[in-house]
C-alpha cells in the first residue's frame, strides 16, 4: 500500500540569482509517509522556512518539484493552488495565526466555510475539534482573550478541520513558554497517535526535537542528517 503523502525531489531555491546567488535550498529530497511526526532542525538561515514554504505550496522551487498525494503542486497556479492548499494542507504559523475579530469557534469554522461545507457538518466538527484541543470552554473567546498557547491550539484545530494530508508548522512553539510549548507538543503527538495525522514542523527547541520521531537536520540548504527511530518502521523509506 502506498502511504506516501509527500514527495519532494531535488528542491533548489536560489535567491538573488542575478547578483550574488543565495542557495536557500540546494538539492533537497524529502519523502514523507502518512502518520509521520517529523521535526526539521538546523541553524538560523539553514533553509527550514524555505523548505516548509516549498512543500506547503507557498513558494516555487527554482528547480525540482513537490508532489503531494499524487499531485505535482509545482505546476499549480493561482486559485487552483489556493484551493489545493485549502483542501490538502494544514498550516500552523509561528504566531498571529488567527483572525483577530473572530472567536475561536468562528476561526475554526472559517476554513470549512471556505470549503463550503454545510452548516450542520461545520458545527459538529468545530465542537469535536475544540474538545480535541482542550478548548471546549473557550469557544466564544477572541484570540486576544486567549493565551499564546491557547491560540496555537486553536490554530492546530483549524489546520485539522479540513482533514488535510498533513499539517505544516513553522516554529509553532517559538513564541511560547516551555510549559505551553510542552502542552502543544503533547496535543500534537496525541493527534498524531490517535488520528494518524501527519505533522511536519520546524524548530530550534531541543525539547521539541526530543519529542519528534524523525528529525531532519538542514545546513546551508542541504539535508545533512535524517534520523528515524527504528521502532517506527513506517517512517522509513
Amino acid at each position: 500500500m502506498n502511504n506516501t503523502v509527500l514527495d519532494a525531489h531535488n528542491l533548489k531555491r536560489v535567491y538573488d540569482e542575478n547578483t550574488i546567488p543565495v542557495y536557500a535550498l540546494n538539492g533537497v529530497h524529502l519523502h514523507i509517509v502518512r502518520g509521520e511526526f517529523t521535526a526539521i532542525k538546523g541553524p538560523s538561515g539553514s533553509g527550514k522556512t524555505t523548505l516548509l514554504n516549498m512543500i506547503g505550496g507557498l513558494d516555487e522551487p527554482t528547480e525540482g518539484y513537490v508532489n503531494i498525494n499524487g499531485t505535482n503542486i509545482t505546476q499549480l497556479k493561482g486559485n487552483k493552488l489556493i484551493n489545493f492548499r485549502l483542501n490538502n494542507i494544514g498550516f500552523v504559523f509561528q504566531s498571529f495565526n488567527l483572525i483577530p475579530v473572530l472567536t475561536a469557534k468562528e476561526n475554526i469554522e472559517f476554513i470549512m466555510l471556505l470549503q463550503k461545507r454545510p452548516k450542520a457538518e461545520r458545527e459538529q466538527r468545530v465542537k469535536e475539534l475544540l474538545k480535541e484541543v482542550g478548548l471546549a470552554d473557550k469557544a466564544g473567546k477572541k484570540p486576544g482573550e486567549l493565551s499564546g498557547g491557547q491560540q496555537q491550539r486553536v490554530a492546530v484545530a483549524r489546520a485539522l478541520a479540513p482533514k488535510p494530508q498533513f499539517i505544516l508548522a513553522d516554529e509553532p512553539t517559538a513564541n511560547l513558554d516551555s510549559v505551553s510549548a510542552g502542552n502543544l507538543l503533547d496535543m500534537m503527538a496525541k493527534l498524531n497517535r490517535e488520528e494518524n495525522m501527519t505533522f511536519i514542523f520546524s524548530t530550534h527547541d531541543q525539547r521539541v526535537i526530543d519529542r519528534a520521531r524523525r528529525v531532519i537536520t538542514l545546513e546551508d540548504g542541504k539535508i545533512v542528517n535524517d534520523t528515524a527511530p527504528a521502532s517506527l518502521d513506517h517512517t522509513l523509506i
Partner: peptide, 16 residues
C-alpha cells in the same frame, strides 16, 4: 498585510 498573507496561505481566494 500579514493577515491577508495568512488568509491566502490557508486557502482563502484573493477575490473573496
Amino acid at each position: 498585510r500579514y493577515e491577508f498573507g495568512m488568509l491566502v496561505a490557508i486557502g482563502m481566494k484573493k477575490l473573496s
